[in-house]
Simulated assay, not measured.
Amino acid sequence: MFNSDSVIWLNSADEIAEKISAGLNNPEDIVLYAQNWFDIINQQPANATCERIWSSMKEILNT
């Protein structure tokens, strides 16, 4: 399930530079959680996502 550590949370605009810097300097945890979340919400294989979107759009437009 979703883990709040999958993204960088901002509470104000004042935190932007600090949070981006922290994310760039220590990306391991955020990247790991984000990859796990991506695997949950995205069908595999991920490189076929565009094709699935086009197929779904064609199906919607033809009904």
Rank of each mutant, 00 (worst) to 15 (best):
S6H: 05
N25D: 07
S4I: 02
L24A: 10
S12H: 00
I8R: 10
L10D: 11
D14F: 04
L32V: 05
K19N: 09
N26A: 14
A46D: 04
G23F: 04
F38W: 09
L24Y: 09
L32Q: 08
E28P: 01
A22F: 07
D5G: 07
N25L: 06
S56Q: 14
P27T: 09
N42D: 04
I60C: 03
K58T: 02
I16S: 12
W54M: 09
E59G: 01
D5F: 08
D29T: 14
R52C: 05
R52V: 02
N62M: 07
Q44E: 07
E18R: 09
E51Y: 09
E28K: 08
S6V: 07
K58W: 06
D5H: 08
P27K: 01
V7M: 12
W9K: 12
N47H: 10
M57V: 15
E28V: 06
S6L: 01
S12L: 00
A34D: 15
S56W: 12
Q35A: 01
L10V: 15
E15V: 07
I16T: 13
A17M: 10
N42R: 05
L61C: 05
R52W: 01
F2G: 02
S56E: 12
I53R: 08
I20R: 10
W54P: 03
F2L: 13
S21F: 02
I20Q: 12
